[in-house]
Design a protein around this nucleic acid. Structure first.
Length: 662
RNA sequence: GCUGCUGUAGCUCAGUGGUAGAGCGCGUCAUUGGUAAUGACGAGGUCGGGAGUUCAAUCCUCCCCAGCAGCACCA
């Protein structure tokens, strides 16, 4: 007999080999029906898997949503693989986990046909539903390693065989049978049968290429994605959320609001339109005030530098594949010959600002009294990104960083990092973001000694701990191998209005570049010392930050950032004179305002400016003109507020004030 | 860079082996209307680029470019 302890503290003596399903049945028929899995000593397990020893048992029902979703999605993935193999014999299966909103499965299409496409999805979905309707039992079986490998090889499943052979020696190799005719190697757990799934609660969404084991040197598989839920209501709600997210896509809003455009002749670089550049200018002003207040000095450095400089900084060796390289010569003007000779010296557009800032630091002799020296630049950088990586404003080839480098002594690092944490906190909060902080640790490819990396990692960790931010509330986490080649990184991940996260801010503690570029200062002892260099950014890049803001605000910018803050719209042309008067006074008060005196109905104007997401619409007719008032209709509310022109100006002036100046 | 899909008017999209169409937008005219689309008329496209097949290509084939989804990459 073994002893099973339930969550309420009661215990039962049952025979060894009793399943959680048996225990659920013993407790009551309702629970027996509702139970879909079990937690045995905290581990999620099949409801039908026998318990072999004394254990804590908690039965899992669909009310335990996170567990239930995980189980359902994992089952959907298996059924997807089973359906694909049933429909397309010769398809090899590899791996299929659950995701945040569903599942995917990576398969290798048979050699006789190309990769799977969207056109294949309806048939696969239909077959998945048939498998669910068939209510096939899902049965766990432990197999001997050699037998399992042999069975995969016999079945022509070379990927599975490779994987099975590499699983750790001691690990129990379990497979799951769907009925008696299909099985997959899997750690589990699974639901008791396919019929536990709701056939209306999933949808296959797309097909894409994905490399075997995530390595681009390996064969490319077809990855079939689906979204999966417990019921149709949840699925529909999810599909609706996707639609809402698509509506706030910055590429779409950028066009609708006339903020910027991209075109193939300059792919990866942004054409900022007047409306979009107004947002940029506001952010630039905001950031200048922030860094001025925090003791930084702003500089501007060259776009192009000689390759020898990039060799010395190490970028030529480690980063050249992503640099735009330029021959240092006068191009051949004879149309018959090649434009460049091919034997000129090379120059390169800067992919980052750090070396240039070190060169500024190196001018003259620096004393310990000059430290910390904080050098800031709105630095325009070019990186030759892989074409497939480009994405609207989020990943571009020309971008401007709010970049600064803090040159300091070792004993100033923690203090400087802490001050940066405070500055970043203020900025992100003023834009309405919450955030988490992660520490990215040394990568495999790196410069510098292990001792320096130990120090650098400890300093960053220490600063966050002292700032009180190394807590789960701030999502504190360490990410092995994710650091830059010259330094570990603290990363700020923002959470936007609909819960997505974006990595933007960073601070990195670097001992490599000062060494390579020979930066030094004279210490109190009169000797030369190496400064440590802290690389840091808050917006990350203006392009990307604006893209994030567009999606975060869904285009409904706070007044201080809105390109057009107010429109004065007339009801009849008799009010035109008053409208122009109002507009002039608002302009004089510093408001970005436009007059709409077109010969259109007020309904039309209200609609148009609402769609354009203008925060305030000041409607004026003869009534307002005679009384010296305006009727304000604000974005997001249906009603209007009548107020005097002076009151309206005060209100708009207040709302148009950046948060740091209020 | 890899896999798949897409590229037609300023925008969103329909369509055809015989040189193209809608809605919105734009222009003109009429209408002066009180809070999410007034009506009429009109202008606007070498159908992403190049080559090939064909009597004839926007449509079929091939190559290139870009965009989209994902993968890889993001120092």
């Amino acid at each position: 007999m073994i002893r099973i302890t339930l969550p309420d503290g009661t215990a039962r003596e049952v025979a060894r080999g009793t399943t959680p399903a048996d225990i659920a049945a013993a407790i009551g028929p309702g629970l027996a029906k509702a139970a879909i899995a079990a937690r045995v000593d905290g581990e999620l397990r099949d409801i039908m898997r026998p318990i072999e020893a004394d254990a804590q048992l908690a039965l899992v029902t669909s009310r335990d949503e996170a567990d239930a979703l995980e189980l359902a999605r994992h089952d959907f993935a298996h059924i997807l693989a089973e359906a694909v193999q049933a429909l397309y014999p010769g398809t090899q299966i590899t791996f299929g986990p659950s995701t945040d909103d569903g599942f995917y499965y990576d398969v290798m299409a048979p050699a006789t046909r190309g990769p799977f496409t969207m056109d294949d999805l309806p048939a696969i979905e239909e077959h998945m539903r048939a498998i669910i309707r068939a209510d096939k039992p899902l049965r766990r079986e432990v197999m001997a390693r050699d037998a399992l490998i042999a069975s995969w090889q016999n079945a022509g499943e070379s990927f599975k065989a490779e994987w099975a052979a590499e699983l750790p020696e001691g690990e129990e190799l379990s497979v799951y049978w769907s009925g008696n005719d299909w099985m997959d190697m899997c750690r589990g757990p699974h639901l008791a049968s396919t019929g536990k799934l709701d056939p209306a609660a999933f949808k296959l969404t797309r097909v894409a290429g994905a490399y075997w084991r995530g390595d681009q040197n390996n064969p490319q598989l077809s990855r079939i994605y689906g979204t999966g839920w417990l019921n149709k209501k949840q699925l529909d709600a999810h599909l609706l959320r996707l639609e809402e997210a698509a509506k706030r896509d910055h590429r779409r809003l950028g066009q609708e609001m006339d903020l910027f455009h991209l075109q193939q002749e300059a792919h990866g670089s942004v054409f900022w339109h007047p409306n979009g550049y107004l947002i940029w200018r506001e952010l630039e002003g905001y950031m200048r005030r922030a860094i001025d207040g925090a003791g930084y000095k702003e500089v501007k450095t060259p776009q192009v530098m000689d390759a020898r400089q990039w060799e010395q900084s190490g970028h030529w060796g480690k980063y050249r594949a992503n640099m735009f390289v330029i021959p240092d010569e006068v191009p051949n003007v004879d149309d018959e010959g090649p434009v460049i000779s091919g034997d000129a010296d090379w120059m390169a557009l800067k992919p980052m600002n750090c070396p240039a800032h070190v060169l500024i630091f190196r001018q003259g002799i620096k004393s310990y009294r000059d430290l910390p020296l904080r050098i800031y630049e709105n630095g325009c950088c070019h990186r030759n990104e892989p074409h497939g990586a480009l994405h609207g404003l989020m990943r571009v080839r020309q971008f401007t960083q709010d970049d600064a480098h803090i040159f300091c002594r070792e004993d100033q690092i923690v203090e400087e990092v802490q001050a940066f944490c405070a500055l970043a906190d203020r900025v992100y909060k003023e834009f309405g973001f919450t955030y988490s902080i992660k520490l990215a640790l040394r990568p495999e490819q790196r410069f510098g000694s292990d001792a320096d990396w130990d120090k650098a990692e400890n300093e960053l960790r220490d600063a966050v701990v002292r700032a009180g931010l190394a807590t789960s509330e701030f999502g504190w986490e360490e990410l092995p191998g994710e650091g830059a080649f010259y330094a570990p990184k603290l990363e700020w991940h923002l959470t936007d209005a609909i819960g997505r996260t974006w990595q933007v801010g960073t601070i990195q503690s670097d001992r490599v570049l000062p060494e390579r570029l020979d930066a030094s200062y004279v210490g109190e002892d009169g000797a030369r010392h190496r400064p440590v260099m802290l690389h840091r950014a808050i917006f990350g890049s203006y392009e990307r930050f604006i893209g994030i803001l567009i999606e975060h605000y869904a285009g409904r910018f706070p007044v201080w950032l809105a390109p057009v803050q107010a429109v004065v719209a007339t009801i009849t042309s008799e009010a035109d004179g008053y409208a122009h008067d109002v507009t002039a006074k608002l302009k004089a008060a510093g408001i970005r305002v436009e007059a709409d005196t077109r010969n259109e109905k007020i309904n039309y104007k209200v609609r148009e400016h609402s769609v354009a997401k203008v925060p305030h619409l000041l409607v004026v007719g003869m009534r307002e003109a005679e009384e010296g008032k305006v009727a304000i209709r604000s974005l997001g509310s249906d009603g209007q507020r009548i107020m005097t022109l002076e009151e309206a100006i005060d209100m708009l002036k207040h709302e148009a004030t950046p948060p740091d100046l209020r």
